[in-house]
């Protein structure tokens, strides 16, 4: 199940239009008409994107009367954010170690500076 959820999150995020829709929803809920405004796209095309986002549980649609506002759902994005955080920690700690290692190499280099070197 978890695997399927992350798969559909990635598939939904692969499209630039859908990413733009999510970015817009990050600043508050909006109607389909409002979401369609910045794109040169037909309403059915936008609705299709919204359905993909809804299935990936990245958005929910309200029940309020006519305009059924779309809202961003943060939970699936949290998975991705966690992943990125995981990468970040990995790289930062590796960078620290690389920093120490390069310092050591330089120190060694200085000690051997007077001797002829192979490289």
């Amino acid at each position: 199940m978890q695997h399927d959820q992350l798969s559909s999150t990635f598939a939904a995020l692969a499209d630039p239009t859908r990413r733009a829709i999510l970015a817009r929803l990050a600043s508050g809920e909006a109607s389909v008409t409002q979401l369609a405004e910045p794109f040169e796209m037909s309403m059915p095309a936008i609705s299709k994107h919204l359905k993909v986002l809804e299935r990936a549980r990245l958005i929910t649609r309200g029940r309020e009367a006519q305009w059924r506002p779309c809202r961003l759902e943060a939970a699936p994005l949290k998975d991705i954010a966690e992943w990125i955080e995981h990468y970040r920690q990995f790289w930062e700690q590796s960078f620290d170690r690389l920093d120490d290692y390069l310092r050591k190499l330089k120190a060694k280099d200085k000690r051997h500076a007077r001797k002829p070197r192979k490289n």
Binding site: L13, E85, W91, F95, L98, D99
Partner: peptide
Amino acid sequence: ANPLERELTLTRVFD
């Protein structure tokens, strides 16, 4: 980091 773009950028200066 940008979760929407699934992207992370790190910069660091090494001596």
